[in-house]
């Protein structure tokens, strides 16, 4: 298995010494994110998130299945992460690395276990038919802070997604095509966002947000906090690493809340813009005989 090239001693020292003086290689403030951008695909439920040079694509899809026997009233909701060799030669297909396991666990805890998606609303006929919602996360380019970008992409994809409308009449379940009825959004309860702090130095006294890949390689510890805009913590994961004062962790959480609120309002804005762009006036506009051709004069 090829390994990721480690930064040389010189590079390591350079980054760390600059951080001692609160200077980052790309000139950002310690608590400043790289420019976050989101593009929706042509289909519903495709979100392409770029955070600096990190790029993550999430695609949500739905299919009809049978619910699990022990949870007959719940639909199925899964998040699948894939780190392909395209991102880095250290990742192999079908053999999850530690990074991949940790990312998928974090997304699972942040989005699924916090109850962001109402899985009960996915059930159509108790014990017989339900929707299975699946989000595939593909990392297209890795320049650090995969978790925050991936989480944003998953939430964006799910909020953008529309599943086919259904109806129950006399025990007959009908699933409508998009032409028959407008697809409906998922029943979404709250939007959690991950904010990852990286700690540097022997004492862990330098903390910064949105680390690049170089910074991630030389950091001595990290802490991922997931929150929604209502100030509810969905998950905290500081899985070992350098010891950090409890008080500074509390400060980190408070800053993380500001960042999560910021991300939340950005996502709301982008979703509203996209909805406006897609709204062509419903079926009537689509069936119109006129075309957009501008007559030559």
């Amino acid at each position: 298995m090829p390994r990721e090239a480690e930064p040389s001693l010189n590079e390591r020292q350079f980054v760390l010494q600059a951080l001692q003086d609160s200077i980052r290689l790309d000139g950002r403030e310690l608590d400043q994110y790289r420019p976050l951008e989101l593009t929706f695909g042509d289909q519903y439920g495709v979100a392409d998130v770029t955070l600096g040079k990190t790029r993550v694509l999430a695609k949500a899809s739905a299919e009809l299945t049978v619910p699990y026997a022990d949870r007959p009233l719940d639909g199925i909701f899964n998040i699948a992460t894939e780190l392909s060799p395209m991102t880095s030669p250290a990742f192999e297909v079908n053999r999850p690395t530690e990074t991949e396991v940790l990312i998928s666990r974090l997304l699972e805890k942040t989005v699924r276990r916090s109850g962001a998606l109402d899985t009960e609303s996915l059930c159509l006929v108790a014990g017989q038919k339900c929707w299975s919602i699946r989000v595939d996360v593909h990392v297209l380019s890795h320049d650090g802070n995969l978790i925050d970008a991936a989480c944003f992409a998953v939430v964006a994809a799910l909020r953008h997604f529309r599943k086919p409308d259904t109806s129950m009449e006399g025990g007959v379940l009908t699933v409508y095509t998009p032409a028959e009825r407008e697809p409906v959004p998922l029943s979404w309860l709250h939007s959690p966002f991950c904010v990852t702090w990286s700690f540097f130095g022997e004492e862990g006294d330098i903390a910064l947000l949105d680390a690049t890949w170089m910074e991630e390689q030389v950091r001595s510890g990290s802490c991922t906090i997931s929150l929604n805009k209502h100030g509810e913590i969905c998950q905290i994961a500081k899985l070992g690493g350098v010891p950090v004062e409890a008080v500074s962790l509390l400060q980190c959480t408070n800053v993380a809340l500001i960042k999560a609120k910021d991300m939340s309002s950005k996502l709301d804005k982008w979703l509203a813009e996209d909805a406006k762009r897609r709204d062509k006036g419903g079926l009537l506009a689509e069936l119109s005989a006129e075309n957009d051709r501008v007559p030559d004069i």
């Binding site: 109850g115 100030g231 509810e232 994961a237 899985l239 070992g240 690493g241 004062e245 809340l257």
Partner: peptide
Amino acid sequence: RVVALVCESRVQI
């Protein structure tokens, strides 16, 4: 000094 902090449930900040 906190080495590990793991919270897996939803809680007010």
